[in-house]
Structures are given as C-alpha cells and as structure tokens.
Simulated assay, not measured.
Amino acid sequence: MNIYVSNLSFDVQDEDLKDFFAPYGEVTSAKVITDRETGRSRGFGFVEMTDEAASKKAIAELDGATVENRTISVSVAKPKEDRPSRGNGGNFNNGNSYNKNRY
C-alpha cells in the first residue's frame, strides 16, 4: 500500500521516514519529496509497505502524531492524476502567432 505523509519537518530524510513506519511492518520504500531546483524537502513524502493490515495500522496510529515538533498527516496515497505538462500549459507557441499574418 502506498501511504502519503504530509507536514514533515524539512529536516526529515528518507531514512527517517522509513524508521517512523518500520515498527508497523516491512517498508519497501520511503521517499521525502524534494524541490528540483534547491534539493530542499517540500514537507511531504510517500511510504510503501507490503502488508495492507500493517499499512492501515500505521496510518491509524501515526496520523496526527508529533514528529520533530510537527503534527504529521498520514493517509492512503491517491493515484497520481494525469495533468497537462507545465512546460506548454498555455500553448503560447501554437502556430497562431499574431506575427504570422503580419508580413
């Protein structure tokens, strides 16, 4: 099961996140999401656990827990939705430029 964890301290690393969930069962992956440009934590992450019952117990017991003086939120991760890419979201260069018919 994939678990979403938010309101993490910016000091929390992948290994710390894994350690928070390890007492509940096998953690197959733990990833704190970082900003692409700065490499700084964005304050949330994802944990994947193999056992669904262990995942549900971890969610129930860790949601609202205080970690490094912050109250974290823990829930089942929702599937990533398809969204338009940010690179050409405005479609500014679509061939209908105002310069096309000027010359």
Rank of each mutant, 00 (worst) to 15 (best):
R102H: 08
R36T: 09
R70I: 09
T71G: 01
G90V: 00
F44T: 11
Y4F: 15
E68V: 09
S97N: 10
F44V: 10
G89D: 02
D63T: 12
V76C: 09
K100I: 02
K18C: 07
V47R: 02
T66A: 08
V12I: 15
S6H: 03
N99Y: 02
N93M: 01
T38V: 01
Y103Q: 13
A53K: 09
V5L: 08
K100S: 05
F21L: 11
G89R: 15
A54W: 13
S29R: 05
T38G: 08
F44K: 11
I72L: 06
T66L: 06
R70H: 07
G25I: 14
S85N: 03
M1K: 07
G95A: 05
T28W: 03
D35L: 07
N91I: 03
V76L: 13
G25C: 06
G87K: 10
K100E: 04
E48P: 01
V74A: 08
G25S: 13
R36I: 14
F44Q: 07
G87N: 04
N101K: 15
F92K: 06
S6F: 00
Q13M: 05
E37R: 14
V76E: 14
A58D: 04
D35F: 00
A65R: 03
Y4W: 14
F21Y: 08
P79A: 03
T34V: 15
T66M: 09
T50L: 14
D63G: 08
R70W: 01
Y103K: 15
R36G: 09
R36V: 12
R102Q: 09
A30N: 04
K18G: 12
N101G: 15
S9P: 01
I33N: 10
L17Q: 04
G90T: 09
T38H: 00
K80L: 12
K78Q: 13
K31M: 12
M49K: 01
K100C: 00
E26Q: 13
Y4P: 06
I72N: 10
E48Y: 05
E26P: 00
K80W: 00
E52I: 11
A77S: 14
T34H: 01
G45E: 02
I72A: 03
A58F: 01
D51Q: 11
V67N: 02
V5H: 04
G39L: 04
D35Y: 01
N93Q: 10
K56F: 01
E61P: 08
L62P: 08
N96H: 13
D14S: 05
I72C: 06
F44E: 13
N69C: 03
D35K: 12
I3P: 11
L8R: 12
G64W: 05
Y4H: 15
P79L: 02
S41M: 10
G64H: 02
F92L: 13
N99Q: 13
P79W: 02
I3H: 05
I72T: 08
E68D: 10
Y4Q: 15
S75N: 15
R102F: 12
T71C: 01
N7C: 09
E68H: 06
S85V: 03
A54K: 15
K78T: 13
K56R: 07
G25M: 11
R83S: 07
A53D: 15
N69P: 03
A65P: 07
N88I: 00
D19G: 09
V67Y: 05
G39M: 04
N96A: 04
A22K: 11
K31P: 05
Y103P: 14
R42F: 01
N93T: 02
G87C: 03
I59G: 09
